[in-house]
């Protein structure tokens, strides 16, 4: 599942408990800025073997997961 993968990456990045990351958690509240998001997207691409084109700003973890699911086709 994409959401779990993102949650694991975030937990790793910010050093928080993976259980605290919900679909509705905002990146801002998690202390993740746009540069961190870009880095995680690149890592996710390598893990999932797909290219993710971000055209809109993602506010929540759930939004990003949903977007990536749609890109996976």
């Amino acid at each position: 599942m994409v959401f779990e993968k993102i949650a694991a990456l975030i937990a790793d990045h910010v050093g928080c408990d993976i259980a605290d990351i919900k679909a509705e958690s905002t990146f801002e509240a998690l202390g993740i800025d746009s540069l961190d998001t870009a880095e995680m997207v690149i890592e996710l691409e390598e893990e999932l073997g797909i290219e993710i084109q971000l055209k809109e700003k993602m506010e929540t973890v759930g939004q990003l997961a949903k977007y990536i699911e749609s890109q996976k086709g």
Binding site: L35, A38, E39, V41, I42, E51, Q53, L54
Partner: peptide, 13 residues
């Protein structure tokens, strides 16, 4: 860009 990841992401678009 202010990071390598941004460079990778924007560089290919």
């Amino acid at each position: 860009v202010a990071s390598v990841a941004m460079a990778k992401m924007l560089g290919r678009s």
